[in-house]
Amino acid sequence: MGYQLNFAPVWRDFDLLLSGLALGIGMALVSVLLVGNLIGLVAAFAMTAKSATLRRIAGVYVTTIRNLPIYFLMLVAFFVLPQQLGVRIDKVHAFTGTLSIYAGAYLTEVYRGALLALPKGLREAGLAIGLTERQTRLWVIIPVMVRNALPALSNNFISLFKDTSVAAAIAVPELTFYARQINNNTFRVIEVWSVCSLMYVAACYLIAAGLRFAERRMAIPH
């Protein structure tokens, strides 16, 4: 058989792979870090709110999304919804929106757990010094909650970042998409896929290190 390892075709298009990785990271930052966290925080408070309706809506959202595959949601967002609503949606936007909603459900669980783990006296202490409910939530509850949730948030972020690879299935020019393209053009199967997965592993590692650094910076000294 004699398969000779030849990384040249992969290196030639390495800039494509890198741009794909950058897009993946970018999508993850927007969907997860920005929108997903926002949704997660809001829904977490909704799930522990006094209003039963709010609790129910948030609960349905979380349960539904968490039991559905991202690939499924993406296809619905990209193929079905535009057709039904009669609009054309850009691929990247469609995926970013899907990932945001997907991420929101998982992050809600993280924040809900962090919220429930807070000592009850924390909110009461905030109110006692005269802060309104909103101020207490903003300046007392959320900062403590987020710090407690950081490890779980980091894990989820990395996992959701890996999920950006699914976008390749609708031809979003992401790392996996380019890897597949190079694979189909050059048939350097071992080379391209080992480089591709190595890039993901390295990216996850760097993200994890970065998040650990952020955790340490934000940690409450004790």
């Binding site: 890897a179 694979n183 048939f187 199967v189 071992i190 896929w193 997965s197 993901y200 390295a202």
Partner: peptide, 20 residues
């Protein structure tokens, strides 16, 4: 290695590598 690789990449890699 496996944990840092998205499952989609694992699937594609296995497919292209092993079916060929």
């Amino acid at each position: 290695y496996v944990r840092g690789t998205p499952v989609f990449v694992l699937i594609l890699a296995c497919y292209y590598l092993l079916s060929g």
